[in-house]
Design a protein around this nucleic acid. Sequence first.
DNA 1: CTAGGGTTTGGGCAGTTGTCCAAGGCGATT
DNA 2: AATCGCCTTGGACAACTGCCCAAACCCTAG
Lengths: 198, 198
Amino acid sequence: MSTAAEQGRAVRRRLLRAAAELIAERGWRAVSTRVLAERAGVAPGVVHYHFTSVQALLTEAAIGAMRDVVDGLGPVLDRARTPAEAVDLLLASLDDYTGNDPASLLFTEAYLAATRDAELRQAVGGVVVDFRRKLAGWLGEHGVRTPEETAAVLAAAIDGFLLHRALEPSLSAATVAPVLRRILAPPQFRGRTQRKGR
Amino acid sequence: MSTAAEQGRAVRRRLLRAAAELIAERGWRAVSTRVLAERAGVAPGVVHYHFTSVQALLTEAAIGAMRDVVDGLGPVLDRARTPAEAVDLLLASLDDYTGNDPASLLFTEAYLAATRDAELRQAVGGVVVDFRRKLAGWLGEHGVRTPEETAAVLAAAIDGFLLHRALEPSLSAATVAPVLRRILAPPQFRGRTQRKGR
DNA sequence: CTAGGGTTTGGGCAGTTGTCCAAGGCGATT
DNA sequence: AATCGCCTTGGACAACTGCCCAAACCCTAG
């Protein structure tokens, strides 16, 4: 195996890493060929040697980074013994993400860019569905009655929480955790339905 | 009052309307001076006569449009008699928003652009806080124990829901509504506290 | 040593961007 | 009729963009 080919793949990886960083730093649409090359320490031409387009590079980088984060959430779930504990652990691990950190920003950027690009949309959708499936499976195994719907709301609430916290840092995980836990413990033990008022 | 001045303010309004449309259509960073002018039916130079910069125009347009939407949600709330009904009505009115409609896209675009611009961030944050305050006030008057936290989670979940639905249209309001309603009816009637596990 | 493959270089191309500005139009006031 | 204020025009500017490509490079195989 030639050294050149090895180095080539190393440069490719460096470009992907640079892309993930720059998406978070500057925003999806502000990542240009030249900046990518500079960050990766290569000449501008290299970008279009290893990737068919800047958009393709950004897509591959974002999806990879998102998969890493989602995969990292698996072990967190496995440490929990009850659904309530799972929510607490998830939210606690979210405390690392301020809403303005690289990982959160990359997620938001990817979500948004996905609304403009069908291919990216499908890829991002795949990541989200995977996470929801994983979460739903875990919830189902731990006694939650409607695991899919619960997982869907939980996933959406978590993303919405990150989005809102980026705008208003006073929003803390501790504030929302008690409320969010209610999702897991429906008052279905009593016969009464939801219409508690009036 | 001179006709020229009147026309000037009309052109200004047209530019704001064009900006709101184009943010949704093309994305925040893809709205350019020329496209704005063309959509508003004026020469390119007009943009920088009425606004100090394109960014300023976009900001004013986005905030205005967001305020309109949030103000429109007030009457929806007033039609509800119970918190559960309020959630249903809110979600139902959300059914107009597919996640890929102009209003949803403008919100997402503004949220994201806010992470890159301090001034915009503050303005968008103000809109969100206003909505949450309004919602919290209503919830408090209708028997919800922790109105602020509940409103915060509800608002975040709704935005997250829109975000996720843009990626995966199968997600419907009907699916999440039952789960989301649990947030309002905590199992606090029983003596057991939230730490149901262990 | 030569030939060949994969990789890298740096400049070139045509197009777009935000911002500015000298010049002109036009109705109201003097 | 002349002047004034506000608005509008369309082009100029430098700086950027994605993509491309001939040439050079370097290491391995023959």
